[in-house]
Amino acid sequence: MSTPPSTPMSARTSSGPVAMTGRYALTSTRMAYRNVRFLILTVALPLLLFLLYANVYQGQDAGDGLSVVAYLMVSMASFGCIGAAINTGARVAIERQVGWNRQLRLTALPGPSYLVAKAIVSMLVTLPALVLVFLAGATIGGVQLSAAQWVGTGLAVWLGLIPFAVLGLVIGFAGTVDSVQPISTITYLGLSVLGGLWFPVEAFPAFLQDVATVTPSYWLADLGRSVLAGQGVPLDAVLILAAWTLGLGAIGVWSYRRSGRRV
């Protein structure tokens, strides 16, 4: 009886960490997209809120060349994407509990590649919320932009989500299966409110306005709205989001190594 030919070990390992990272990220992304409940929860709320606000504020001007609906479109897209990115960390906690994380440590996949792959997955699962809210803005909301403005604004919001993807990993490694979901929910709702995604920061008390300008969600919205209004990419937003990414990345590496000592 013949057996199927096996792939030589050298061929399996010669692809290198970059290729292994890509394959693992692709596999994990497919699994995430199969979780219909997760996708619905991270898309439905921001989309419904946007449609509600668009109906109330249709035709009003927000200043800086932006309509209120366009302003809210960026806010609600950011809100949905933050939730999707952070809540991906729940999957990490589940993998740790069932021992999948321990098994991966025994494979040829390097630790940094695992972290990068998970961050890529977090970024990819944000796309449905971003695309659908923008689509609702272009159709039901009546937001009229050039092709360059749509692409530029979408890319600005999407790339600004990197620190939130890293934050999701930190929560996934630090929390347990029972605690990670409430921690993720409180974190993303808190960042959304404090960052001015639900209400204008100018309406906050003075001390909360100071707190808001420290949050990455505030600068994510500022980045998207600035590009949308044709004001270019604000350097301060880029630098602060980069600082959040580096800081959270360091915590994420420490949390990953610490979780390895517990498995």
Rank of each mutant, 00 (worst) to 15 (best):
P4I: 08
S6C: 03
S6I: 05
T7D: 03
S14C: 09
G16E: 09
A32C: 03
R34H: 15
N35F: 09
R37I: 08
F38C: 04
L39D: 05
T42R: 11
A44N: 01
L45R: 02
L49I: 04
Y53W: 08
A54P: 04
A54Q: 05
Q58H: 09
G63W: 03
M76L: 11
F79M: 13
F79C: 05
C81M: 13
G83C: 15
A84G: 02
A90H: 15
A93F: 06
I94C: 10
E95G: 09
R96I: 05
G99H: 01
P110V: 00
P110C: 02
P112V: 00
V116Q: 01
L124D: 01
V125W: 05
V125M: 14
L132S: 07
V143N: 02
Q144K: 13
S146C: 06
A147G: 14
A148M: 08
A148L: 11
T153K: 08
L155C: 02
A156G: 01
W158P: 04
L161Q: 14
V166C: 13
V170T: 10
G172T: 03
A174K: 14
Q181E: 13
T185I: 12
T187D: 10
T187I: 01
V193T: 11
G195L: 07
F199R: 01
P200C: 12
L208Y: 12
Q209D: 08
A212E: 14
A212M: 11
R225V: 00
L228K: 12
V233C: 04
D236C: 06
A237W: 02
V238I: 05
L241S: 06
A242Q: 02
G249E: 12
G249L: 05
R258P: 01
S259K: 04
